[in-house]
Write a protein that binds this DNA or RNA. Structure first.
Lengths: 144, 144
DNA sequence: CGTACGATGTAACATAATTGCATTTAGTGA
DNA sequence: TCACTAAATGCAATTATGTTACATCGTACG
């Protein structure tokens, strides 16, 4: 999602040591303009040099815990991962293609959500909001 | 979510025969004011009389396909199920407690989403929109 | 009746993610 | 430099959730 981000800096800001594997995972997540599944990320990394599937899961968990990466639920069974919102990236909604599983980022302005009233009155603690559109993407629609 | 709904009627409207198991599943889904996981539904049904886990999954799939029940993704690994929006039930956002897994329905007005522009310009086919807040519910927050 | 088809049960399988434990790596002080 | 420690990674097994294949049951209809 970002070529302005320095991945080692993102890690050190999050108080995480910049191991080779962490940087590799973060590069894959960050250099894509759309979120990927753990499997996508693993497969991409394996093409270059070996890494363990579990290591990928663990690094993703760690990055999510430290707010570097965002875990996004889909209309399917696997989570997808993208860079967490930060000064360069506003929170934004996603589109999930129920046919091919491709997930796309939508522009922050495409869907405006007013949650001011909600925040004022909700008795629990709010961590994040997720807005997702499910449907059939342009490509899959054309094929049918 | 609804005591105004006649479950046999919902089934026949969806052109589904009203088998005992379908009615039982739909009662559990419909009589709760919050969405449940397939496991929750199965456990509840098993308390009364025997039903197979797979049957529950199949009935839920069927009801989702026919628009009677809505499949809702959570911040966790399992899907949750609630009555699909209909004349008695507007679409509405949900709150998911990352600690206890409880999912609650929020009022349709609590979060207003303007997607008019998006619908006009998006090149794919839109099936549904999901808005979910993740956080810690009041109960879990008090315990900590 | 009997037959045909939809509904259900059962076991096996598939997928995504997690856990336990062994091994490797990197950093730190003697 | 070496030894020690803690963190990071690898590997195998396990868990959680959901799906498939196929057998059986039940019911509507000729």
């Amino acid at each position: 999602m970002c070529h302005q981000c320095n991945y080692e800096e993102l890690l050190s800001n999050a108080k995480l040591s910049a191991t080779n594997n962490r940087i590799r995972v973060l590069e894959v997540v960050g250099n894509n303009s759309f979120p990927l599944s753990a499997k996508d990320i693993f497969n991409t990394l394996e093409r270059n040099s070996s890494i363990n599937r579990v290591t990928v899961y663990r690094i993703l968990d760690l990055l999510v815990d430290h707010g570097v990466v965002e875990r996004i639920s889909t209309g399917g069974r696997a989570f997808y991962y993208g860079l967490a919102p930060n000064s360069h990236h506003e929170p934004h909604p996603h589109f999930y293609c129920m046919n091919c599983g491709q997930m796309d980022c939508l522009s922050p302005e495409s869907l405006t959500v007013d949650m001011d009233d909600f925040i004022k009155t909700f008795p629990g603690q709010i961590e994040k909001m997720e807005v997702r559109i499910d449907g059939i993407c342009k490509n899959c629609g054309n094929k049918q």
